[in-house]
Amino acid sequence: MINIVLGVLGVLTLWFAVVFVADFIKHKDNLETHNTWGKVLFIGFITDFFDTLGIGSFAPTTALLKGMKQTQDRLLPGTLNASHTIPVVLEAFIFITVINMDPTTLVSMLAAATIGAYVGAGIVSKLPEKKVQTVMAIALFITALLMMAGQLNLMPGGGDATGLSGVKLIIAVVGNFILGALMTAGIGLYAPCMALVYLLGMSPKVAFPIMMGSCAFLMPVASVKFVKEEALDRRASMGITIGGIIGVFIAAYLVKSLPMDILKWLVIAVIFYTAATMLKSASKNKEITE
Rank of each mutant, 00 (worst) to 15 (best):
I96Q: 02
D73E: 15
N35L: 08
Q70A: 15
H27D: 15
L31M: 09
L146D: 13
A181M: 07
V98N: 08
L218E: 04
A82Q: 01
D102E: 12
A113W: 04
L154A: 08
Y273A: 11
A112D: 09
M211H: 02
K225M: 13
L53V: 10
L65V: 12
V221Y: 11
S165M: 08
V270E: 05
R74V: 14
P220I: 07
K225C: 07
N35A: 15
I240F: 13
V197T: 09
G150K: 03
W37P: 03
V11E: 14
A17K: 01
V5P: 00
A231I: 04
I250M: 12
V5T: 10
M136I: 14
A185T: 07
R235I: 11
F141P: 00
L189K: 06
K39V: 13
Y273V: 05
A121C: 09
M136K: 03
L254K: 05
Q70P: 01
F45R: 02
V5F: 06
L279Q: 05
G56E: 03
M212P: 00
L65S: 10
T114V: 14
N153Y: 06
A161M: 06
E32H: 09
M194G: 13
L31E: 06
G244Y: 04
V270P: 01
G163V: 01
H34T: 14
A275S: 14
G213S: 02
E129R: 12
R74F: 13
L31P: 04
L232E: 09
K130F: 14
I246N: 05
M194P: 01
A275R: 01
K228N: 15
T61D: 10
P156R: 07
A92I: 03
G120P: 07
S281F: 11
V135R: 01
A63V: 09
L6I: 08
L182A: 11
